[in-house]
Design a binder for these strands. Sequence first.
DNA 1: GTCGGCAATGTCAACGATGGACATTGCGCG
DNA 2: CGCGCAATGTCCATCGTTGACATTGCCGAC
Lengths: 339, 339
Amino acid sequence: MTVQQRATLDDVARLAGVSAKTVSRVFNQRELVGADTVERVLASAKRLRFRPNTLAQGLRRGGKTNTVGFIMGEFGNPFYYKVASGIERELAAQGHRLVVATTDDTSDGEARVADALLSQRIDALLIIPASHDQSYLEGERQLGTPVIAIDRPALNLAADSVVLENRETVHEATRRLLALGHRRIGYICNPADVWSQTERIAGYRAAMAEAGITDTTAWARLEDDRSVRPERLIRALLEQRDAPTAIIAGNNRMTIAALRVMRELGDGHTALLGFDDFDTADVLDVSVITYDPIELGRRAARLALARMGKANGPTKQLVLPSWIVERGSGERAPAEPGR
Amino acid sequence: MTVQQRATLDDVARLAGVSAKTVSRVFNQRELVGADTVERVLASAKRLRFRPNTLAQGLRRGGKTNTVGFIMGEFGNPFYYKVASGIERELAAQGHRLVVATTDDTSDGEARVADALLSQRIDALLIIPASHDQSYLEGERQLGTPVIAIDRPALNLAADSVVLENRETVHEATRRLLALGHRRIGYICNPADVWSQTERIAGYRAAMAEAGITDTTAWARLEDDRSVRPERLIRALLEQRDAPTAIIAGNNRMTIAALRVMRELGDGHTALLGFDDFDTADVLDVSVITYDPIELGRRAARLALARMGKANGPTKQLVLPSWIVERGSGERAPAEPGR
DNA sequence: GTCGGCAATGTCAACGATGGACATTGCGCG
DNA sequence: CGCGCAATGTCCATCGTTGACATTGCCGAC
């Protein structure tokens, strides 16, 4: 098995009887080359299976790799994959590629992974911030690599971001539950110390306060320890005295855990509303707050592309809509009228 | 805003008061350099935010980029994300990175995307074959880029592959349904013209034949046209005369579609068994054939790493186990005894 | 006929890191 | 005192491609 050598510009040039530069021209600005020459070069290139070496190109062109990095945390949530998909599509349309890295959800991991990506000379960095400080990216940003935060703003770093209408939609959702007669409304999430959750919680609290309920400590289960199983949190909440008659689940995992626990307890009356949609939500009649994760990725990618190369204007924050989808579980009235 | 220049080896060398060569030594074979010098160099590098230029390194070192490409089709199936996750973890552990690309599930896209990845000079290519011919990769393979097929063997290309025990497990599953008294057992999938499905179908047919049922045309709905909605297929099957008393769904999407349709029809008696597990399968009591997608990715990545650089031995096919998880829906006996 | 001008193509260096082949220090030790 | 070795430096080539600039040759205008 002869391991052939990969063909280079020179090889193609030699075969076509021209100079390397001309071959290079053919592959870039074709208009400067004679039609017959173009043809001859392309034929040679094809015969040799020539492929321009992106490394050399990138080096010569001053570090542009046409590659964008994306750092995401938890692999558990399908939401992130859809975001990645959106990013990938938008980038592909512009001739860029996506490198994905994951952080194992440790803040240490985040910096480490970012470092690995950056030494790849990516043209932009998209990140779902997991740690509580992204200042370690400041240097790189000053060197001209755009950083775009997704789902949450970056902390201690001037980066563009794309986020959701967390507060508003949860506010509205809580209001609807109140209108149904619910008073003991629970909010449950883990981790609770990320921006998206604090926003949602703020919406929840504001609506409760409007209804005169200022103390929600009995029903808000805000856990930060990621090792605590969601099922445990929910079971504790549902089994307590004065259990809530309605629950808002802060994300996908919480919602599914809630379904699991309610089923175990034979609980068919507690109203349930989850943030994030999921595949079988319609089959299970689960009302959710939803949004378009693909669009989230797309917009983030678009922001990155816009930043690339251009002078740096002020930091932008893009807010995408989220909305309520009623499927039954969130429209149940309390069994006993709210006291 | 001063856009600083990125630091190079020379910059670091100048600041540390040593030669570029020494800096290079520090970053590669540290043992040849004095401890204090190492320290001084590292300090300078840190101050200048120096990062060895991977492009230049890769170029110099002959195209090694420490990057592996992964091409996957349909974004709809969460299965692929888990596979990607497995790949990413295994690669990360070995200091490699993952570039992900998607094909929009068109066979044309597959070649185009592969081309884009390959010009990136990836060290290996992992692919879930979507088209019916991967011979276009033959040239690249001969140039030394390992190609590993995931979930399905590559067609017209000598590539390693990692696949599942499709045939055996579906065979066993069908046998169990038969043992419960089912005779009219349906198998439904789309697309049906991919290897993994033909294997599963073969297992199904073999078990049926063992029970003396050689004609399964009335219950096997094998659709190839990807634009046909799964719900339509299933509804047609369930509403026909002599509808099956049990259904095996060929993948995730089919299973969920079946649940949706059965719900609409108020059908609570038809036995259902799905290939691929999903998040809420336990809540919905859905019996499935499952496997470990992360392990699938891991093993594929490991195969790729093993091939990289090494001389090419014979093509390997790795078969990973799949197994049945009983949750209720697949253990229902037929309403009327099989006639 | 000659020269300006332009289209087509070639030459050469440089991008940043690394490796080979040495040369040069300086220190410890026999 | 000089040998040997560790630590470092010099210099140049190299990876594949492209930018800056040079060259060639032909056409048309004067």
